[in-house]
Nucleic acid binder design. Structure first.
Lengths: 342, 342
DNA sequence: CGTGGTATTGGAAGCGCTTCCACGTCGTGC
DNA sequence: GCACGACGTGGAAGCGCTTCCAATACCACG
């Protein structure tokens, strides 16, 4: 491992001068600079990022805290982050959160030296957790979460739930079920609850009182979607349409519909949420979340926040969009609906 | 930011003692240890990882070099890595490689201080690149790539190509097309070429001389799959089956088949490669690669290599498996095939 | 020829940690 | 009562870098 001192010795200058050259600081004569650069090339010198970081107090790394890295939606966001970071000089450290303990651990461990900035995805951090992070001086940007005084990239989940439900109402459905995440999940995710609110708003707007037996909750898993949908469909008065708060649960629901020997959309319509790739293949009507874009924008905001002129924290709301495919139709429709939007 | 010295002062001991406590080194009396731990808790002290790394010469981080982070197969592997790293004390730094320049840059930048170990995915690194990496003393594990003297996790691509083709031959196909990656791609990926070899082996075994007009190449993209398949199908003597060297290209091929007004599998059978999630939804018969498992195993091997007793470098070959779904059937089959394997 | 800048430069200090060495302070065996 | 380990412990040195300060050289000007 070549050190800066060896380079200095080789070039016949002081260590400080070499440092000035690598950092492109002003005040090095062109002659000296050239000599130093040559020595660097000859010796194949690479500055030690750790030493640099220790000395400068920052490490050219941004951390991404992402719950359930294994979920398609998280991946899509991460893709956006990677894309945005592509051109920058920052490395990306991944903190996967699968349990509340993970989160606590990461928050506790985190400090300025691990990452200069932090992208927090989907996790509604508690006040004290955020306070601790802020105390380290790290720049923080939230994606799919919100907190006073912090820049954030969000979507309107309530509106999304409303859009999905309204679409079904417009098609003529009255008995509409809803499947969402557990409202009292251990992470404090609340987007599902908001979507449920949107569902209720749309129902109310249409003058329908939701049948509480048609509103079910369970973990964000495909199998759970199958199970919940099975429950809905086997009831005394099954719904003619189901709003799912994720494409994953919707995929499960579709399985349940097939298993029950029912047809989609003739017997049951299904709307999902997210528009992950799978939705295209399933022909799933869904509320598209700008996942990639949100990750990308979040990373950009973070880079800005780390820059020379950090802008005022601002909340960026990205639009949701209803993508109509073949999983929804008027209740009791007899013919296959035509045309698939990709 | 609390430093080790402040903790030492608070506990009335020397900095060395505090260090010994955090690192659980022997030689600290229980009384002192308790006092120090209390001070740490009171002051909420967190060791600075940079300083620690600088001092110890390692940074508790492993790097993952992954080309085309945006590809489903890469993601699946990464999931495995994250899973394997879950319990360890190592952080994960992601190096995305989208262009050969990226790769060169990463290899140049990399040094021991950035990561203690390196997981190289799918990238056939050149000798000099590897030499440079090895010179840093980093532990290296290859996944889906191989190099003398390095631990690796691989699959037999030739055998995979053979399996896929044999399956079609067994079904009675004779005119079988092949679609693969560009053989002279800028990264030096060769798995597609190996699969093509397997295809030729299977054809030869069946006594069939492949029609070179049915062997096409193009970038690993869905759109390209559509295009190539379109070409195959519009020829004077279209194939009755196509072996695709990835599920992504296969998905494109399926589109082309639909677009051409043909039926799958009655008119054309399709076999993919990878078994990404999409394959299930497409009903795609495919050669399953143990993607998750390979990432997980790779990460485990790396952790072992970083451990106290690094094992001898070893090449671990994981099995491929043909997953039969509804995209393949005997040529000219009249009835929908039954039963879907998930 | 003296004065005050400006342009370069070397090198010490310090970032926060680990680790090694030296220094007590005991307890033990004689 | 003394020598000798073993055990705890403090603290200096050093990891490789940045950055600041002082020093030098050089210039133009009067």
């Amino acid at each position: 491992m070549v050190t800066i001192r060896e380079v200095a010795a080789h070039a016949g200058v002081g260590a400080g001068t070499v440092s000035r050259v690598i950092n492109e600081s002003a005040g090095v004569s062109p002659t000296t600079r050239a000599r130093v650069l040559e020595s660097i090339a000859t010796l194949q010198y690479r500055p030690n990022p750790l030493a640099r970081g220790l000395s400068r107090g920052r490490c050219q790394t941004i951390g991404v805290i992402v719950p359930f890295f294994t979920q398609a939606s998280a991946i899509e966001r991460l893709r956006g982050v990677v894309a945005a970071l592509g051109g920058s000089r920052y490395d990306l450290v991944l903190f996967d959160v699968e349990t509340p303990e993970h989160r606590a651990e990461h928050v506790a461990t985190l400090n300025r030296q691990r990452a200069d900035g932090l992208l927090v995805m989907s996790l509604p951090l508690a006040d004290d957790e955020l306070a601790r992070i802020m105390a380290t001086g790290m720049a923080v940007v939230l994606v799919d979460a919100q907190h006073e005084g912090l820049p954030a990239v969000v979507t309107d989940d309530t509106e999304g739930g409303r859009m999905a439900t309204e679409h079904l109402v417009d098609l003529g459905h009255r008995r509409i079920g809803f499947m969402g995440d557990d409202p009292d999940n251990e992470f404090g995710f609340n987007s599902s609850a908001l979507r449920e609110t949107g569902y209720r708003v749309a129902m109310a707007d249409a003058g329908i009182t939701p049948d509480e037996a048609l509103v079910l909750h369970g973990p964000h898993e495909r199998g759970v979607g199958t199970e919940l949908a099975g429950q809905l469909l086997s009831g005394p008065e099954p719904p003619t349409a189901i709003v799912c708060c994720s494409d994953v649960q919707a995929a499960g629901a579709i399985e349940a519909i097939r298993a029950a020997g029912l047809r989609m959309p003739q017997d049951v319509s299904v709307v999902g949420f997210d528009d992950i790739e799978m939705a295209t293949h399933l022909g799933l009507t869904t509320v598209r979340r700008p996942l990639f874009h949100s990750g990308q924008l979040g990373a950009r905001l973070l880079l800005e926040a780390l820059g020379v002129h950090p802008p005022e924290p601002q909340v960026h709301e990205l639009d949701l969009e209803l993508v109509t495919r073949t999983s929804t139709a008027p209740p009791g429709a007899t013919s296959e609906p035509q045309g698939e939007t990709t």
